[in-house]
Design a protein around this nucleic acid. Structure first.
Lengths: 231, 231
DNA sequence: ACTCCATATTGATACTTTCTTGATGCGATG
DNA sequence: CATCGCATCAAGAAAGTATCAATATGGAGT
């Protein structure tokens, strides 16, 4: 019965230890339709964008960008279930990973049975809404996995904050985002007085992505409330 | 930031040890809106049916029906997130609980930080399934989460106060709202003399959402009393 | 440690929208 | 037919917004 959940699935295993990958492949192969492997974070992000796996098994300690970063980057556009595997058992590590967007956290050594049970839980939650890592509206294209933004085919160069802003706009595309909300998303908590700052950045962003910044067609301003990216 | 997820929530704690319940209450109280407790499975099921908590923290070893059974029974009609707490660390127990429908499983002793992080994960999942709160009457549609108001499919631009007014109208849809009540809702306390102001705003609102503002079909005037939004 | 550069922040100012107030007209009621 | 409650209009006040320019900051490279 329980196996039914994880049949015909594409699973991406990210771990730098070959032994672990082999072990997982052996354990999962009889149940999973397809298993993809990689040993680093950069490649994991690429694999996710190209293969759209149904589930991710992710080691925390990776060469290059670590598991937390992979999780955060992925969560910018994907809701694929992520199960973290790690040797670290401190609760701070767990909290950080879970808050970064992971769905579960297992400490090595782990039992395959438990892993598979937790995989079933993770898959139960997502009715697999496949989101494309590309947002498009009018001539504006935002590729969330490569972080490339183009207008009418031409790439525009955005500063980090400008991109962060745009990312939030995309996340809430079509909806109104209040100044407070926006500041909370891109900064942390100490917002409030920084509305002016937000305006400047939005203005700069408009200069770069709008055909006519005076008459914005993408980022509309909702007077007295905030902004809104047209969908 | 992360606390935002678990604000204004109703949490049901099911454990037969008073000490654990007390401990959880102390730990969660600053974050959760309301905490309900019970020490047995039968009551847990009743509490869920009557109070509809947002999350369940459930001990596995209970007098009477055990945690597994509670989970199974609950899953027959409810999708409330369930986090299992247990002294048992064997993977068979975990697998059984997770497959019964639990969303997570923590072994005692646990760290409150980790519990709360896992609660956030559980609530995150739940959030995706909640449908948007939309009010509809005639050709008027008010989407309270996106702040978009449409009449006959066409979007109307409302000023902040106009929207605030409409929000209150929706809140008391079908019922009469006195001028005083309305002023108290949208302003604070110093109301009373501002009835004229209210009229102006209502008038403006009508111009925007009514087909024939002279003959309002949505916002009716209750002479001598106040207004009423037709439901 | 220093310089330089891109970016972030702050300040100033012109501009736009929204709020508020007072004036006016309408219609029902006693 | 005078009065009251209501709706609407219009103009000034207040609040919110866009943009340019000046200064501060932080990180990369030397």
């Amino acid at each position: 019965m329980s196996d039914a959940f994880i049949e015909k699935l594409k699973i991406l295993v990210v771990d730098d230890e070959l032994a672990i990958r082999r072990y997982l492949r052996t354990a999962l192969a009889p149940h999973a339709h397809e298993i993809i492997e990689t040993d680093n974070g950069e490649d994991a992000l690429i694999q996710c964008a190209t293969h759209h796996p149904d589930l991710l098994i992710l080691d925390l300690n990776l060469p290059g960008i670590n598991g937390i970063t992979v999780t955060q980057r992925l969560r910018e556009w994907s809701e694929v279930p992520i199960i973290i595997l790690s040797v670290q058992d401190q609760d701070t590590a767990k909290i950080e990973a879970l808050d970064a967007g992971a769905d579960d956290y297992l400490t090595k050594p782990f039992s395959v049975g438990e892993l598979m049970a937790r995989m079933r839980v993770a898959l139960r939650h997502r009715k697999n809404e496949v989101t494309e890592p590309v947002f498009e509206t009018g001539k504006l294209v935002v590729n969330l996995s490569t972080r490339i933004v183009t207008v009418d085919g031409e790439e525009v160069q955005l500063t980090p904050t400008e991109y962060d802003l745009l990312k939030v706009f995309v996340k809430y595309a079509g909806r109104v985002i209040t100044h407070q909300q926006m500041l909370k998303e891109v900064r942390g908590a100490g917002y409030q007085t920084e509305i002016h700052l937000l305006r400047v950045h939005v203005s700069n962003l408009r200069q770069k992505i709008e055909d006519d910044p005076t008459n914005p067609q993408y980022i509309r301003t909702e007077a007295g409330v905030g902004y809104r990216l047209m969908a």
